[in-house]
Computed example of a mutant assay.
Amino acid sequence: MPVRVTPASRAHLDAVRRAFRALPKDLRNAIRREQRSQVGPIWREEMAASLARTSVPARALRPQQRVFRTGTRVKAGLPMYLVAGASTRTMRGGGLPVDLDAPYEFGSNRRSNYTRYNRRSKNGTPHTVTRRAGLQLPPRQSNGYVVYPALARALPRVIGTWVHAVNQRIERAIDGS
Rank of each mutant, 00 (worst) to 15 (best):
R140L: 15
A30Q: 04
G124I: 05
T54V: 12
R153S: 13
A15N: 06
Y145T: 09
A173L: 03
R62W: 09
A58K: 00
R140D: 15
S87Q: 03
Q38E: 12
A48P: 10
Y117M: 02
L137F: 14
A8P: 04
A15G: 10
R59S: 15
G160M: 02
R111A: 03
T128Y: 02
L151S: 09
G134A: 05
S177D: 12
E105A: 03
F68R: 01
A19D: 12
G94C: 04
V158M: 07
A52R: 01
L13H: 03
N143G: 11
Y104Q: 06
T115S: 05
R69E: 14
R44M: 14
R73V: 14
L13E: 15
G40V: 02
L135V: 10
P41K: 00
M47A: 10
Q35C: 11
S112R: 00
D26G: 11
R36E: 13
I42E: 00
T6L: 06
E34R: 01
A19G: 14
G124E: 08
A86K: 01
T115C: 01
A60T: 13
Y81N: 12
W162F: 08
H12F: 07
P7R: 00
V74M: 02
A86S: 14
P24E: 12
N123E: 10
V16T: 07
R111D: 06
P156A: 06
V83F: 03
T72I: 14
K122R: 13
L13S: 13
A22G: 11
D26N: 11
R21P: 13
M91S: 06
A154S: 05
A173Q: 01
A19V: 12
V163T: 11
I159Y: 02
V98T: 09
A48K: 00
P57A: 07
K25P: 15
T161W: 00
V166R: 00
S87K: 00
R172H: 09
E46G: 05
N118H: 05
V67T: 14
D99S: 12
L78D: 15
N167P: 09
G160P: 14
T90W: 01
P57I: 02
Y145H: 06
R131M: 05
R116I: 03
G107D: 11
T128H: 00
R119D: 08
A133E: 10
R66N: 08
V74K: 00
E34Q: 05
P7N: 07
N167V: 09
V158N: 05
R69T: 15
K75S: 12
S142V: 15
L155Y: 05
V3Y: 10
R116E: 07
R92H: 04
G95W: 08
G95T: 10
R44D: 14
T130W: 00
L100T: 11
R153L: 13
R59P: 15
Y114K: 06
N109E: 09
V67D: 10
Q64T: 12
Y148A: 11
L23C: 11
S121A: 10
A58Q: 08
V83L: 08
E34A: 02
L51I: 07
Y81L: 14
R116H: 06
E34W: 03
T72K: 05
L96D: 09
P103N: 05
R44P: 13
